[in-house]
Design a protein around this nucleic acid. Structure first.
Lengths: 133, 133
DNA sequence: ATAGCTGCAAATGCTTTGCAAGGCC
DNA sequence: GGCCTTGCAAAGCATTTGCAGCTAT
């Protein structure tokens, strides 16, 4: 059994991200065992709640790095703001337009069949399904 | 058989949009029988090619009105820029990330099954599938 | 005359970038 | 010491808004 900070350290190490203070702090906010969909502002607010001093730029830097490293998944539902999903397994989303909020679609409920032939020399990077409500 | 401008006039009328000069001009650019995925800049460029004098604000206004009226479908694949699809029938998209370009997935190739139960009191506004390449 | 439309410029919101100061091995 | 990181402020984009002048009825 490992405690939180060990767990976070290993997580960053596994993805070859240097475990700096801010990165560990933000990773600690995000990877607490609960799946989350956060915007940059959400992270700033969370950080403030826990008295983590940081800056807008650093939050952007960190989230972008985490996403590039595959630790977070960037979810695009709207121009204007980006969401980051702490659940990186293959799954899809409900998007509540009036609340500008994402929610995972439970389990592997959705099946997609009849994927078309791809244009030559292309391969699928991802299949994103968003159900707008 | 109706000529182009009649056709455009009827299209706007059917969607209860006042057929002003600019709106007819932009509708003429978009609804020429070819399905298109355009950004605001694309429309401005198209307009310039045909010597249609207009402004950024009017293009935004017009595209937003068309989308609100159901004449265009707004497609979100990326934060940063919006695309408008002239094909409003039920269909899905390939997104070529390196070219920032959309393409319709032919026919009704894709089938989605196992749609999950919706949260209480909600109904589906749309189901958007994007295959990123 | 009146109501609505257009287009300029300014404002807004999110995100990125430049860079100086600071922290860590 | 040297390299990476941090955070401030400024810059960068896409989009929206305020508003004065124009247009068409």
């Amino acid at each position: 059994m490992s405690n939180d900070s060990t767990h976070i350290g290993q997580l960053l190490a596994r993805h070859e991200i240097r475990p700096t203070k801010i990165r560990k702090a933000i990773a600690g906010l995000l990877f607490d065992g609960q799946d989350k969909h956060v915007s940059v502002d959400d992270v700033i607010a969370l950080a403030r709640l826990r008295d983590i001093k940081t800056s807008v730029a650093s939050v952007y830097n960190t989230l972008n790095q985490f996403a590039a490293a595959g630790l977070l998944r960037r979810v695009t539902v709207d121009t204007g703001r980006a969401f980051f999903d702490t659940n990186i397994s293959d799954h899809h989303h409900f998007y509540f337009e009036d609340e500008e909020r994402l929610e995972d679609i439970p389990g592997n409920a959705i099946e997609i069949s009849g994927l078309p032939k791809l244009p030559k020399g292309r391969r699928i990077k991802s299949v994103d399904v968003t159900i707008r409500l």
